[in-house]
């Protein structure tokens, strides 16, 4: 145990994501695949993003498509915070201390790990500083509070704004993520239209 265990004081409400996890588990075992995300109109708009060289050539397809790992397994904060989060290096090592340890990419990852460093990933998706975007709310609307939607199909919701990442190796930006893009989607799906809902 970490000797420096700090006692968590978080103001008023104890943060509880137990309920969220239970929900995830419940949904994993229910329902069959549907053609499109129910109760949702996917946003329209395309963007031709540049290739982004990353410190480690991370193959999303291997993880999300071939091995069918749920997006939220790594981007674990998406359901409970503004940001989806780049997975902590410890999470990568959780598998890759035993899986594919002889590949060049994993060797490089292990090097970072042993130096007590995280790989300096390059940012691909971003919104301006004056935008308050929260993953949590969108996941709630399109996934967890969406009656006919199963949680293992989360990648289809992610794809609204991130494209078919499971078909990419290193992720590219393929949606414009500008105000018009957001606004059209909000109008089609009943999102808030109050300026201060999204601007800060």
């Amino acid at each position: 145990m970490n000797k420096y265990t700090y006692c968590l004081y978080n103001g008023k409400r104890p943060v509880s994501w137990v309920s969220a996890i239970l929900l995830v588990l419940a949904l994993v075992f229910s329902g069959a695949g549907l053609a499109e995300v129910p109760n949702a109109v996917p946003p329209e708009g395309e963007h031709k993003g540049d290739d982004v060289p990353q410190p480690i050539h991370f193959p999303h397809d291997t993880h999300a498509k071939i091995n069918e790992i749920n997006c939220m397994y790594c981007h674990t904060y998406a359901r409970r915070s503004k940001v989806a989060g780049i997975p902590p290096t410890s999470k990568c090592m959780g598998c890759h201390s035993v899986i594919a340890t002889d590949s060049d990419r994993i060797k490089k990852l292990t090097e970072y790990w042993e130096k007590n460093e995280s790989p300096p990933w390059k940012k691909v998706h971003d919104v301006p500083d004056y935008v308050h975007f929260t993953h949590e709310k969108h996941m709630k609307r399109f996934l967890f509070d969406n009656e006919d939607m199963e949680v293992e199909r989360v990648s289809e919701v992610c794809a609204f704004c991130h494209g078919e990442v499971k078909d990419m190796e290193v992720a590219n930006k393929v949606k414009p993520l500008n105000m018009g893009f957001c606004q059209r989607c909000h109008e089609a799906n009943g999102g808030p239209s109050d300026c201060w809902a999204c601007h800060k």
Binding site: R13, V15, S16, S19, A20, K137, K200
Partner: peptide, 11 residues
């Protein structure tokens, strides 16, 4: 916003 988000997270 934070208070609203927290409340909504906990329904």
């Amino acid at each position: 916003r934070v208070a609203k988000d927290t409340a909504s997270r906990e329904n």
